[in-house]
Every structure is written in structure tokens, then in C-alpha cells.
Design a protein around this nucleic acid. Structure first.
Lengths: 359, 359
DNA sequence: CACTTTCGTTGGATCGGTTCAAATTTTGAC
DNA sequence: GTCAAAATTTGAACCGATCCAACGAAAGTG
């Protein structure tokens, strides 16, 4: 019974068993850390004492202080913890981070919090050797917090506003978005709509280019710039392209489509700033029997695996997610100060959600 | 530049800034931990000193030792770390564990390792207040390791062999499997095949009831017992039902189906011990134009979300995964010793992968 | 038997904080 | 101006280990 949950009392320390076994604490420590250097007779005696007193081995809390290294990397986000398991992009990223960590024997600590106050505290008190910061949302706040810890850290996102001094790995959002826009214009599309990622913490709803230019989140801003720069080159009046800010979930995406398709002049092409948005959009369109790509084409952004099996499979801008994760872990573990910012290439992957304009 | 990666030298401790600010370390500590009790003038002076010396706040390593609680729970598995993000069952479980942790402000540490030696060390040195142990594979070894830490822990699995003393949360595998088997027999099926979860660490291939009875993993054994008990009640000769041991991945499942369908008397009903197995099986059957449920019916086990959107949607035994996660976290955090073992109910969820026997 | 190695053990210093009883200073009341 | 009460600050003790210089005993050498 006592085994179940060894109650509230576990005051048994290394020193206790040392005393019980009649040896110094130094020797007792050696029994666990370097058994080979202590005489067998003594070793057995100490182990027996440990066993008898229900000692669970040297407490890592103590060791840690002296050793210095935790041997774990923290992955932080401003979203709730379940984001790591719910979001397709995060999942792929985490899978590759995991692999890199496994390869080096490092552990992973998930750092997040329900509210901002908690978040700050959790970052300040995370037992890690460094941070990888997911910047999807509330990025700069997080980066600031992480930097205050004065530990090595890498932001997963290339915020063009950020100090050059913050290490970051990301993709060229402007170029990627440009690729998506060009693909659709080349297919003859002229009437566009944009389903945007969050612009600020303010919820969702229709927004404007001006709003987005002031966006808190540079990823959102850069992708829009990329879209519009390319559309402009094809003489499309971007001031008339509706932009709807979503929060990357079903509800806001559907609301966005309701709004966009309520107008007189409905788009034939949708630029979605994430695959998740695009996939939710696909569901909405299917429910209304709007053919994709017959009536409407749509291009996502990210390149998550779900896009390969959607109906229809999603044309998208693929980020080298796995590579990003690998580099991030490497940057933390081999923190030699040489690392700063790295921009990885993106690719247009044409699948079946985009086709010639119906007009 | 020095900001990027503050080099190898960070010998600035609380004591250093205390000296610099001309206060005792006790006061310096208070500035960070309970700012309100120190006079404003002093507080500012200490903060200024900290800023000037590049102090990143009290190191949690130090605090930890005194505080005792880490405020994080460890989730352990014998699989590689990426299992948490790749496996559908694990993902749902982790999502619910995350939610429970978020609600209480606890963090999550993922504990795993590439090899067994590493695993033992990682468990011994994990900085956590307790463990949730995924017992899918190598369960008993893990449970043993976790128990040696003498920390509260819960096994996610009701191994009937385990000591009554190990706290565990699981489902009644026998009853669940029975539900699956009865559903199919009631639809008129008489020719069955079983795609099993791992029986031992030995890889995959055809196996027998006798082998499974000796299985290392009780989940596998109990599910088979459940299937066969029910089939026997319908006068089906279970000794002729082929059993193929998979490792829960595409390759082994496909090999299993190759093997099973190579025989003269092909089954009309497949009992899959996990949804993941069932979903891979669905792919195999589709590729061979074997109609589901026209030619072959299949029932999975777990109730993962992917089963709802497969082609066709999967009939399965649903486990209350979210509830299990919640209870596990609760058991760790409110470790009052009252908890021991808990068996949760499973349900048959009939979707479109099962139908009347073709005969 | 004295003298150097080798082996195993000891105990103090240290890691970086938090805590709390006691000491000190400030404030308020008369 | 005096004294008690309130507000701050101090410094020692402690959290649980690891590390290492020094030491004692046993073994080896001449």
C-alpha cells in the first residue's frame, strides 16, 4: 500500500543512507555515480541501506545544481499546450524536433500557459538549456521573455522587425506568398480573396491592407505583402481584394467565407495563409457544393501532411518544416554563438485544389 | 552581438548583483521573489544592478532545490520521442493531458530515449513531480523504472499482471474486444482474421493463440482473449482464425494482409487491435479493390479522430482517451495516495467499415 | 623494517537560490 | 524627546547532491 504513493514524507536523502550505512556522504554518492571506484563490500552495504530506507536514487534536483546542464530543451508557445498536438504545422515541427533531440539524447519540455502572467513565470522557471520559440502568435512577447532568460534560444520565424540579434530560423514569407499568387494569376484568376492569419490579438473579422501593415505578427504582414506585390504585377487592383482575418480555426474561417461569398462579386481564387485555414475552407466549400477547383481555386501555406489527403489535395507553399526543426535543435545544442538567422527556401507544390479560372 | 549567445561565461549569480547593489543576498532574493516587501529605492537599485550585469533573473536550478516541486509532469514512453506527435492515439491522449496540465499550470516533460540504457538514465534524472507512463510497448520495464524513482506515477494501461500496487488507468480490453467480435458475428460473419498489436519485442509475423497467451504485453493478450471468448460463444473455431502480429505500422500491417489473403479461405471480417492498424488495412484493401464493408468488414480499437474521416469511416471500439488523460494528470497532481487502479468503459461505435457478411 | 605506491574513504567547499528569526531602521503617538 | 509598533534588512541555515584535495590503510619494493 505504501508503494502506491509514498505518502507525503520522503525526507530520505543521500546523507541519510550514508549515515545508516556508516560511510561518508562522499562515498555514498560514489556508490550511485561511480560504483566501480568503491569497494564491493561497502557498495553492497550502501545499496542495502538505500533499499531498506526506500531511497529512490540521487535526486536529480540536487545533481542539477552542481552539474549545470539540464539536458533538455524547452519549446515555448503562447498557445495552450495542446497546440503542440492539435495543430498540424506544430505536429510536424515537433516531430522533427523530437527526432533531433532523440539523436542527441536531449529531452523536451513543453512550455506554455493559459494566461500571460503564467507564461512569463513558466518561461522564467523552465528547467531547460535553451528555448525554441514558436512565433505563430504573440511572438515578440515570447521572444522578449525568452531573451530575458539569457539562455540560448531560436525563434521559429523570421520576423523582419526583430532585432537582428535574435537568432531565428524561418522562410521567406514574401517570396512564398508571391509564388502562390503568381500560380493563381497564371491560371487566369482575377478575382481574389485572402484568408489571413491573425493580425493582432483582437479576434477575427474583415480587415484591410492598412491594418495588416501595422500587424503585430510579421508573418501575416509579409505574406500579405507577398500576395499583393505579385497580384499588382498582374495589374490586379489589390485595394479591392477582400482580406479576412481568421484565428486559424474552423469558426473564423467559415465566418470569413460567409462574409466573402456574401458579396456580389465572389472570388474565383482564395489565398489562404495556412494549410489549416485552407483545409477548413475546403470543408466549407464542399458543404456548399462549390467545386474546387472548378468554381474556386485555393492555395494554402505550410505544406502539412493533411494537405496531401484532403478532398481535393491541396495546392500549397511548402515550408521545409523538418529541416527547420533540425536546425533549431542544432542551434540550441551546439550553441557556439555562431548562429544567427537563417532563411530557408519554400516551394510551390501544385496539387488539385487549384486550376484554371472558370471565367 | 554578445546578446546572440551569451558565450560560455555566465557566472553572474544573485549574490553578485547583491554585492554590486550593496545589499544582502536575502534582500536581493526578495527583489525578485516578493518585490512588494522591499523598499522601492532599494528595489530599483538592485534591478538596475541586475540589468547592468546582464542577470537573467533567479536561476530556477537554484530555486528548485529549496522549493521541492518542479511543477511539471513527465510523460514517459519506450518509443522514440516523436511517437508523441506521430501516433494518433498518443496525440489524442497528449492533447487531453495537455489540457489538464494547462488548467493547473503544470508543465510537461517528454521522457524517452533511443536506447534502453538512455531510457533508464533519462527516467532517473527527469526533473518532474511524477510520471505518466505510456505502456504501449515495453510497459513493464518502464513501470519498473518509474517506480524506482519513488515518485507518484500512473500507468496508462491496465496490465492484469501488474502488481495491484501500481496505479493505473485503462480500459477493459477483454470486454472491448468482445464487443467488436460480437458486432461482427451478429452481422453474420464466420470467417475471421486478427491483426494483432505487438506480442513481444520480436518483430512481426504470423502468430498463434498460444504465443499471445504468453505475450509480454497484456493489452494484446487481453484483446485476443476478448475476441476469442466471444467468437467461441458463436461456435466459431478460433483455432482456425489466423492471427498476425504487427508492429502497428503500415509495413507490418500490409505484410499481415498479404499473408492472410494468400490463403484459400479468405476472411470476411477483420479484427484490428488498433485503429492505426485498421486504417492501414483500409488502405491495403482499397488498393486491391476489395470492398469495405461489401467484401470485408473491419473493426478497429481506440476511437481516434482519424477513424471518423477514413474511407470508409471506421467502426471501432472507442476508449475514453480524453477522460483517461484527465484522470492521469489528476492522479499525479493530487497524489493523495487514495488512487490505485481505474477501469474505464469502452463503447462500440458503428460506422461504415462493418456490414453484413457477403455470404 | 622503513618507504613509496596504490586504493578507498573522508569531509569540506560548492552549485544558486529561499527562508526565517533576529537585528536594525523608520514611523507614529503622546 | 521618548518609546512602542511597524517596516525593512540582514545573515545564517538549508535544499540534495557532486567534486576534490587530503588522508589512512594496505600492498609492493629494496
Amino acid at each position: 500500500m505504501a508503494l502506491l504513493a509514498s505518502g507525503k514524507t520522503r525526507p530520505v536523502r543521500l546523507a541519510d543512507i550514508a549515515k545508516a550505512a556508516g560511510v561518508s556522504h562522499g562515498t555514498a554518492s560514489n556508490v550511485f555515480a561511480r560504483p566501480e571506484i568503491v569497494r564491493e563490500e561497502v557498495r553492497e552495504r550502501v545499496k542495502a541501506a538505500a533499499e531498506a530506507m526506500g531511497y529512490g536514487g540521487p535526486d536529480p534536483k540536487g545533481r542539477l545544481l552542481r552539474a549545470g546542464k539540464v539536458n533538455a530543451i524547452g519549446v515555448a508557445t503562447a498557445e495552450p499546450l495542446s497546440y503542440f498536438f492539435d495543430d498540424p504545422f506544430a505536429r510536424v515541427m515537433m516531430a522533427s524536433i523530437s527526432q533531433a533531440c532523440d539523436a542527441t539524447g536531449a529531452g523536451i519540455s513543453l512550455v506554455s500557459a493559459a494566461n500571460n502572467e503564467q507564461l512569463a513565470w513558466n518561461i522564467q522557471s523552465a528547467l531547460v538549456d535553451g528555448f525554441i520559440v514558436f512565433c505563430v502568435d504573440g511572438g515578440s512577447k515570447l521572444v522578449e521573455l525568452a531573451r530575458e532568460r539569457k539562455l540560448p534560444f531560436v525563434a521559429l520565424d523570421l520576423d523582419s522587425d526583430d532585432d537582428e540579434a535574435v537568432a531565428a530560423i524561418g522562410v521567406d514569407n514574401i517570396a512564398g506568398a508571391g509564388l502562390a499568387a503568381r500560380h493563381l494569376t497564371e491560371l487566369g484568376h482575377r478575382r481574389f480573396a485572402v484568408l489571413a492569419l491573425p493580425v493582432a490579438d483582437s479576434g477575427f473579422g474583415p480587415t484591410t491592407q492598412e491594418q495588416v501593415e501595422k500587424a503585430l505578427y510579421s508573418g501575416t504582414r509579409d505574406r500579405l505583402r507577398g500576395y499583393f506585390a505579385e497580384l499588382s504585377r498582374f495589374d490586379i487592383d489589390v485595394s479591392r481584394v477582400p482580406i479576412y482575418e481568421t484565428v486559424n480555426d474552423e469558426e473564423s474561417v467559415w465566418a470569413g467565407l460567409d462574409h466573402i461569398f456574401a458579396g456580389a462579386e465572389t472570388p474565383t481564387a482564395i489565398l489562404a495563409m495556412s494549410d489549416r485555414i485552407a483545409l477548413h475552407a475546403l470543408d466549407w466549400l464542399r458543404q456548399r457544393d462549390i467545386a474546387v477547383p472548378g468554381d474556386v481555386s485555393i492555395v494554402g501555406f505550410d505544406g502539412v501532411p493533411e494537405g496531401a489527403v484532403s478532398k481535393p489535395p491541396l495546392t500549397t507553399i511548402v515550408q521545409p518544416i523538418a529541416e527547420m526543426g533540425r536546425l533549431a535543435v542544432k542551434a540550441i545544442l551546439e550553441n557556439d554563438g555562431s548562429f544567427s538567422r537563417q532563411s530557408l527556401p519554400v516551394d510551390l507544390l501544385v496539387r488539385a485544389s487549384s486550376g484554371p479560372s472558370p471565367a
